[in-house]
Structures are given as C-alpha cells and as structure tokens.
Amino acid sequence: MSKKFTKDHEWISLDGDVATVGITDYAQAQLGDVVFVEVPEAGKQVAKGDDAAVVESVKAASEVYAPVSGEVVEGNGELEGNPALVNEDADDSGWFFKMKLADAGELDGLMDEAAYADYVKELD
C-alpha cells in the first residue's frame, strides 16, 4: 500500500499485517544532522501516540510517536551505528521500527501523501 503520514511527521507503510514506521524527509531536514537514534525493542506494546523512539541531532531531541497501536516486531539496528542514514534516506532505509497493527482501521485517520504535502506547505 502507499504511505500514510501523521502530523508529527512520521510515515507508516503497511505490508501484510506488518507496518514500517519512519520519520519524513521534511522532519529529518528540520532536525539537521542526526547523531543518535534509539529504537524500540521487539515485543514492546505501544498505543497510538505513545513515545516509541527517540531521534537526536546536535541541538534538538525529539520523540517519535507510534502512529497507530500495536506490537513492535523489529527496531532498525542499523541506525545505532549509522544514525546519518536518517538524513540520507529517511523515506526508506532510514526506517525506525516495524510493528504489528492492533487495529488497521486506525490508519484511516492519517494523511495520504497529497494531504501531507499540503500540510507541510502550510508550515513553511
């Protein structure tokens, strides 16, 4: 399926019953050089809106929230040693974690690509 977006600049992409979550290219650009990422461990239960991961640049630290509820099945271990991946490829290999959705219906409340593009345009 295509990606969905939150107002906190996370993206989520569903493949079967597992969804991948990352931050958007706009978000990484706002943060600047990412120097540290903390991703959740597999098995962690998160409710929609919970703190799920942390992303830090030199001058800012930000929580990454769970866009929907579910169980984390994998964190992106690659980011620990190479946080710059978030800057280089936020939309793809710089993903944060994968999760099993508790309620796929929660995705309906999120923005699609066009709506997110409009949302970002308004922020600038």
Binding site: D33, V35, F36, E56, S57, V58, P83, A84
Partner: peptide, 9 residues
Amino acid sequence: RLDETLAAR
C-alpha cells in the same frame, strides 16, 4: 567552526 556532529556521532 567546530564539527559538533562528528563529536556527537
């Protein structure tokens, strides 16, 4: 100017 990104990474 010092490279603060390098220092933190």
